[in-house]
Simulated assay, not measured.
Amino acid sequence: MQWIECRVHTTHAAHELIAQLFITHGANGTVLEDSRGKDFTPEPWTDIIGKPKTEHLPTDGVVVKAYFPDDGTLEATLSAVKKDLVQLEATTNQPVAQTEILLTTVHEEDWAEAWKAYYKPVQVSETMSIVPTWESYEKRREDEHVITMDPGMAFGTGTHETTLLCLQALEHIVNDGDTVIDVGTGSGILSIAAAKLGAKAVHAVDLDPLAVQVAKENSEANNVSERITIEQRDLLSESSNEQKADIVVANLLAHLVIALAPDIHRHLKVDGKLVVSGIIKQKEQEVIDVLKQETFKLMTC
C-alpha cells in the first residue's frame, strides 16, 4: 500500500493546531520534527533514556508530517484543509493561511521500518520502562516493570506525552485484582501496563484491525496475554463485554472522549475510575464540562 506524506514547515506556536487539523481531516498519523530537539540533552531525572538522531530536524520552527492513504481522495481533503487554514488564521492570528503543503509518496514497508531508528527505551517512572523489542536493556532495579514493545503501524510507542501520562496514572490507581477496560488500545501498551501492575483482567478494544493484531502480539511478547482480551470493536458502544470495570482508560481525541462520556458508567463500577488523555488545551474545559455532566469528579494522582 502507498501513502501520501503531507509536509508543512510552520512555527512553534502553530504546529499543534496544524497537526490537529490534519487529524480532524482523517490523517492516519502525524509526525512532529521540532528544531528545538537539536539542542536537547535529556537530564538524568527525565523519562528519556538515550538520545535519538537529530540530523533530520529543521533549523527553525517545526515540520509537521501527516499521512493519508493514496486512495484518490487526497485532492478533496487538501482543499478542505486549506480552507480550514484560512479560518484558523482568522480565529488565532497565526500566519497559516498561505502555508505550503508538500507531498511525497511513501511505501508502507519503508514507513514501517524507518522510524525504528528514533525509538529508544523510555523511562516512564522509577519503576516502569518501555523498551523496543530490538533494543537491549538492563533493569535499573529488581522491581522495575519492563514493557517490551513493537508498535508496528499502531499508535502507542510510549514516547507520546499522553501515553506517558496514562501510564503514570495507571501506576497510581491499578490495584491487584482490578479489572480494566482500555478503549482505543492501539499497540496495547496501556493494557499491558495494567496487567503488569496487577490487574487480573483487561478488556481492550480498537476499531483498527491492524492495532488489534499488534496489541495481541505485544501482549504475548510481554507474557500477559492470558489476562488481556482484545477485540475489534467501535469503542464502548458495541463492546461484547458487559462486566463493569474498576478502571476505564481512554487515550483518545477530545471529540471521542465526549462521544463516549454518556456510555462510560454502563461499563464502570460505582466507585470506579476513568482515565482520559489525548486532549489538547483548547478542548480541556469542554471535556471537563461534559464529564461533570455525567457525574464524574476530577481527581489528582
Rank of each mutant, 00 (worst) to 15 (best):
W3E: 07
W3G: 02
C6K: 00
R7I: 13
A13E: 15
T24L: 09
H25G: 07
G26A: 01
A27W: 05
N28D: 11
G29H: 08
G29Y: 10
E33Y: 11
D39N: 15
F40H: 13
T41E: 12
P44F: 02
T46M: 12
D47F: 10
D47W: 10
G50E: 08
G50V: 01
T54Y: 05
V62S: 05
D70I: 09
D70A: 10
D71I: 03
L74D: 03
L74E: 04
E75D: 12
A76M: 11
S79A: 14
K82F: 01
D84K: 12
L88S: 07
E89T: 10
T91Q: 14
T92F: 06
Q94E: 14
V96P: 04
A97D: 03
A97I: 04
E100D: 10
T105G: 02
E109F: 00
E109L: 03
D110T: 10
A112Y: 07
Y118W: 14
Y119D: 01
K120G: 01
K120C: 00
V124S: 05
V124P: 06
I130T: 03
S136R: 08
K139E: 04
R140M: 00
R141P: 05
E142N: 15
D143Y: 09
V146G: 03
M149W: 07
D150L: 01
P151D: 08
G152F: 07
A154M: 02
G156C: 03
E161Q: 13
T162N: 09
T162Q: 11
H172E: 15
I173G: 10
I173Q: 12
V174I: 15
N175W: 12
D178I: 07
T179F: 05
G186V: 03
S187W: 04
G188K: 02
L190V: 02
L190K: 03
L190Y: 01
S191G: 15
A194G: 06
A195V: 07
A195S: 10
A199C: 07
A201T: 13
L207G: 15
A215C: 07
K216C: 09
S219E: 07
S219R: 04
E220S: 12
A221F: 06
N223L: 13
N223H: 15
Q232H: 09
Q232A: 13
R233C: 15
R233E: 15
R233D: 14
S237P: 02
S240F: 10
S240R: 05
E242Q: 13
A245H: 02
V249C: 13
L252V: 06
L253G: 01
A261C: 13
R266F: 14
R266V: 11
H267P: 12
K269C: 11
G272N: 05
L274D: 05
V276M: 07
K281V: 04
Q285W: 02
E286I: 03
L291P: 04
L291Q: 01
K292G: 00
T295V: 08
T295C: 03
K297C: 00
M299L: 05
M299F: 01
M299Y: 11
M299R: 14
T300Q: 12
C301R: 09
